[in-house]
Amino acid sequence: MIKQFVLIGLLAILFAVFFVSMQDIQELYNTFGKDYIAASGFADTGSRNLVTAILLDYRLFDSLFEAGILLIAVSGVIWISKHEIEEKNAQFMLDKFNTPDLFVTFSRLVYPLMLAFGFYVIINGHVSPGGGFQGGAIVATAILILYYIDADKETNIGLIVTIEKILYIAILLVASLSIVTRGEFFTNFFALDASADTKAIYLVLLNVMIGMKVALGLWTIFTAFLKEGR
């Protein structure tokens, strides 16, 4: 009990420190970066969505290697859940799991719509809220519905991970193209004074690739978990 009181006291001190620092927030906080991005973000990158402009142009270095962390985490999940054996549960085979018919029909109806919405979010990432990371998550959720329809669906994890690795290398290559055309690392490979429509080609290309990579990564993760659950 005394431990909990000490803990609550320490957390209260943390809160007090945060409260004091919030009083001076106006001195710490400035709007220069925000104003610069608002004024020249569209001209520099050709993206109306300024979040995508930062993700895919100004700070592409960050996004690329956070996509790399995703790949590493997926590899970790697969390595830990590695099974050389086929687990067969005697009781599980006796009363087989049945999905209700209504649920199956509804899932079949919703699945293409969700897939289409995911691709819509990916492709329009530069003109509206959305982009590769979010759209990829939606596409992965749509694929998850397939497992509700058919619980015993077989998936080749090795193939998916191989495609994901190739996609990651391709993303790095597309991002590095700018060193040939512009002389800078990790930015748009079209010239800085190209029109917004031209620059959008690069944005859509990279969004689609990142979206597919994220979708495949999440697909691998929940397939590994569903295999564990069987």
């Binding site: 979040v51 995508t52 959305g130 990371f133 998550a137 939606i138 992965a140 959720t141 998850l144 999440l218």
Partner: peptide, 13 residues
């Protein structure tokens, strides 16, 4: 943008 990502991931996966 963040809300779309959170809904897609936090509601199903």
């Amino acid at each position: 943008d963040v809300a779309i990502a959170e809904v897609a991931i936090g509601s199903a996966i």
